[in-house]
Design a binder for these strands. Structure first.
Lengths: 150, 150
DNA sequence: ATATGTGCAAAGATTTTGCGACCCT
DNA sequence: AGGGTCGCAAAATCTTTGCACATAT
């Protein structure tokens, strides 16, 4: 089973990193593997609690951070921390620095993809979805962070 | 001046919406217009306080919400509220519902844009930037929200 | 004049952290 | 046995909200 293979990979990565492979960590990771949506820490807590009723929210947060820091899981948005605003109401794309999380607008014509011109789907979306626009986010390093990392 | 035109547009929109065009609101909006980054509420507060030292953080937040709700400004990420996680470490794209903010993975081959194959820039980025990958976010309505809105 | 906004401070929500007991290796 | 983790609760952050006074139209 796919999930079991990835659990094994997870255990190997823990061992390699010197992380004790606790029951809580394994249940947390499996819950994330099996999630089809993109759960918040609270949602993950609810799911994991069905299996470990005594687990604490603190443990969930602590392990999420551990997993994120070691690249075992990913966060969908790089800007969950606080609201980020813009007055620019023209369709445009963004560059986001994965290091310092700074953001810059990309000139509208920087990419051959216009937020107003739908990108054609190669496969139809499941029925019921309605797509209004496409936002492209270029992720990388800003000049300051690129220098620091050589 | 471009900024002055947009300030006029802003004042018109306020009047049309029956929103008193207070000094605080104008200074806030102008600060957003003049920002080249994408400031957080706190960062905006710092800038605005240089002009209105007595302004309160509560007013900043309250007006940000007012502006957002009326579409006068935009938020860069739809997921500032809480962390959203995924164990899927394959490059892929996302569908995000602008209404309920639910998220779904798009099949890797749904779009003719591969996160690993760089989208060619039509214009070069300013020097110093290093781009590692492109994430496409399809924004729209999920089936449940599409139904509610007809 | 009246409805709405503002400043202040308290409450709510989300995330992190200190501490003693406990578990993995 | 020993270092790291867990559960608990308190603290730190980020955002919203109630209230009395001030402001915009």
């Amino acid at each position: 089973m796919e999930v079991e293979q990835r659990m094994e990979w997870f255990r190997d990565r823990c061992t390699a990193a010197g992380l004790p492979c606790t029951h809580q960590r394994q249940v947390l990771y499996r819950a994330l593997l099996e999630a089809t949506d993109h759960p918040s820490p609270e949602a993950l807590y609810d799911r994991v609690r069905r299996e470990i009723p005594s687990i604490s929210l603190g443990t969930v947060y602590r392990n999420i951070r551990t997993f994120l820091d070691r690249g075992l899981i990913g966060e969908v948005s790089l800007h969950h921390g606080s609201l980020r605003l813009e007055a620019n109401n023209q369709p445009h794309h963004h560059f986001v620095c994965t290091e310092c999380r700074s953001m810059f607008d990309l000139p509208v014509d920087a990419l051959p993809v216009d937020a107003l011109d739908p990108i054609p789907f190669r496969r139809p979306l499941p029925p019921g979805f309605r797509v209004n626009r496409f936002i492209v986010e270029a992720q990388g390093l800003c000049p300051a962070c690129a220098l620091k990392k050589n």
